[in-house]
Computed example of a mutant assay.
Amino acid sequence: MSKKSKYVAFHKPYGVLSQFTSEGGHQALSEFSLPKEVYPVGRLDRDSEGLLLLSNDGPFIKRLLDPKFEHPRTYWVQVEGEPQDADLQNLARGVTIKGYRTKRCKAHLLVPQPLIEERDPPVRFRKNIPTTWIEMTLTEGKNRQVRRMTAAIGFPTLRLIRKSIGKLQLGDLAAGEFKFVRKEDILPGRWMEWRLEDTLFHE
């Protein structure tokens, strides 16, 4: 009897590892009463927050993580300073990080600036340096990529919240909470048709 596929949206708090085993005294996913037999689909760094997807659907996880399908991921990024349109255009065109040129992305100022509950612990505050929230949508996810991209244009990331994966939105899901979602809530139907075709011919 085949197991039932599960798809779980979790709002990962700051400081929590994207794994079920604790390391270095940091909190892990095992502390949040998540459903059994699900595993993180990708990851968020310990110092990042927001939407983390978990599932037990192996083929779906493999396909979702395949970089050639370039599924979009959207982030709200609090940066130090006030980037101008030209800075965000440079970010969107791609920047060079350790010899790698990032793919084109979407980057724009959030207007109006969002009112977001203070993080615990709070981000560092410098009286004479303002902060700005921007939105970035990427189709690749290299290690600490968003942070390295904003640093490359001179605006260090102070806080990073993943707002969406494909079609799936974080919405009003509270930090530390989770909900079950459907596979079709995550990616467009055409993408799922491609997956079905691959399943028919390659599994």
Rank of each mutant, 00 (worst) to 15 (best):
K4I: 15
S5Y: 15
V8W: 04
A9M: 13
F10A: 09
Y14A: 06
Y14P: 00
G15F: 09
S18L: 03
Q19S: 12
F20W: 09
T21Y: 03
E23S: 08
L29Q: 14
E31F: 06
S33A: 14
S33I: 02
L34M: 09
E37A: 13
Y39A: 00
P40E: 04
R43E: 11
R43F: 11
D45W: 05
E49R: 06
L51N: 04
L51D: 01
S55Y: 12
N56W: 11
F60N: 07
F60E: 05
F60W: 15
I61F: 04
K62Q: 14
R63S: 12
L64R: 08
L65S: 08
R73P: 01
R73D: 01
T74N: 02
Y75G: 02
Q78Y: 00
E80H: 08
E82H: 10
Q89S: 10
Q89C: 08
N90H: 09
L91M: 13
R93A: 14
V95N: 04
I97C: 03
G99T: 02
G99N: 03
Y100W: 11
R101S: 13
T102F: 02
T102L: 01
K103P: 01
A107W: 05
H108F: 14
P112D: 00
Q113C: 04
P114Y: 05
L115C: 06
I116N: 06
E118P: 06
D120M: 10
D120G: 01
P121Q: 07
P122L: 11
P122H: 10
P122Q: 11
R124E: 14
R126K: 13
K127T: 11
P130I: 01
E135A: 10
E135L: 03
E135K: 06
T137P: 07
G141N: 02
G141E: 04
V146W: 00
R147K: 15
M149F: 00
M149W: 00
A151W: 02
I153E: 08
I153L: 10
P156K: 03
T157A: 12
R162W: 05
K163W: 07
K163M: 15
K167I: 11
Q169H: 14
L170T: 07
G171C: 02
G171N: 13
G176W: 03
E177F: 04
E177S: 11
F178W: 15
R182I: 01
R182V: 03
E184N: 15
P188N: 08
G189T: 13
M192Q: 13
M192F: 12
E193S: 08
L196P: 00
E197Q: 10
F201Q: 14
F201M: 09
F201A: 10
E203T: 07
